[in-house]
Write a protein that binds this DNA or RNA. Structure first.
Length: 325
DNA sequence: AATTCGGACAACCGCCTTCGG
DNA sequence: TCCGAAGGCGGTTGTCCGAAT
């Protein structure tokens, strides 16, 4: 038997054995017994090396399947239940920055998986883009999110918490945000425990509807080290950005003074003048009202998810502890 | 009561990157 | 440096279940 023929026979045998293994592999929904096997094995031996883990644990699954089941479902720190308002806001915010980088977005939502966030985006956000008859990636839809939905979310978060001041304290980091009697809003820097003072503007902005500024606005600077955006608001302007309401007292977007718009524009390399910016905003407001008015309970269905202030605070604390965002 | 439809989410697939031999 | 295995990621599909007809 020459070498070529021998190699071919060996290859055929390997393929045959591989096919037998494939035929033996389970697919589809996991059953309780499989979950228990996987949990027990990981509890004893830890995770990783998924292919050998699957074999050693006696699971007739691919390593990939085991990894996915563990990461998306069985992990003890997987957070289940409705996506909160705060999480929605964060998802919209981060997606506007990074697009479909689900795993990256998931890093900032403790306990949520990339799969879950992806599903949320596809089932909720894309659905509403469809209702508005526009592409989810279009500038029109992005601006609708930026100027209308996100400020509304912030307001609902504020309404749900009913708070005028919030303070969080932890062993490793301390932050505080203070609302004054005139509803002005200040965010102090925090100490992360290793003598690093970190700018908290981004969290402050996301925690108070009156100072909400979006990344599309000129108040954003991208940090080259982390490729994460930091928000910068002129100290004198903090707390002065108000929301706009239509005739029915429904929130339709942020309202800024001309000095605020000028401040933003000055930091946007003059890409937008105050007037054109205001006109652009107004055109989106008009467009949105026309469309959403024709769709009953459009906004409500988009936003109708419970809030969990405690988790939001916990998450902020975790972000602070990680020393990043 | 049976069927259809749509939302939610779990799971799979294929491609790409990383890592170790 | 090359190559194969493993892991990671985003897109897509499958399944379940409740609401509507």
């Amino acid at each position: 038997m020459d070498d070529q023929r021998s190699l071919k026979i060996n290859k055929n045998m390997e393929d045959f054995e591989s096919n037998i293994e494939d035929m033996d592999l389970r697919r589809g929904p996991w059953i309780v017994e499989e979950d228990i096997k996987l949990i027990n094995y990981i509890a004893t031996h830890g995770e990783g090396r998924w292919n050998s883990l699957a074999r050693c644990a006696g699971l007739k699954r691919t390593g990939k399947s085991c990894r996915l089941r563990w990461l998306n479902y069985l992990r003890p720190d997987v957070r289940r239940g409705n996506i909160t308002l705060e999480e929605q806001l964060l998802i919209l915010e981060l997606h506007s920055r990074w697009g479909n980088r689900w795993s990256k977005i998931a890093q900032y939502l403790p306990g949520r998986t990339d799969n879950e966030i992806k599903n949320y985006w596809r089932t909720r956000v894309q659905k509403h883009a469809k209702q508005l008859r526009c592409n989810v990636n279009s500038q029109q839809f992005k601006d609708t999110m930026r100027y209308l939905w996100m400020p509304r979310l912030v307001e609902r978060i504020q309404a749900a918490s009913g708070s005028t001041s919030t303070t969080t304290t932890g062993s490793a980091a301390t932050s505080s945000c203070v609302t004054t009697s005139s509803d002005q809003f200040m965010m102090t820097s925090y100490d992360d425990g290793v003598n690093n003072n970190t700018n908290m503007d981004h969290l402050g902005l996301m925690s108070n509807p009156n100072v909400y500024v979006t990344p599309g606005n000129s108040s954003v600077a991208v940090s080259p080290e982390s490729d994460l955006a930091e928000y910068h608001v002129a100290p004198s302007e903090v707390g002065k950005i108000e929301n706009s309401y239509n005739a029915d007292q429904n929130l339709v977007g942020p309202r800024m003074s001309s000095s605020q718009i000028n401040y933003l524009d000055n930091n946007n390399n003059g890409l937008l003048s105050g007037d054109s910016r205001a006109m652009q905003e107004q055109s989106y407001v008009n467009w949105f009202e026309n469309i959403s008015g024709a769709i009953p309970s459009f906004s409500d269905s988009f936003l109708n998810i419970g809030s969990d202030q405690n988790f939001w605070l916990l998450q902020q604390q975790q972000i602070l502890n990680n020393g990043s965002f």
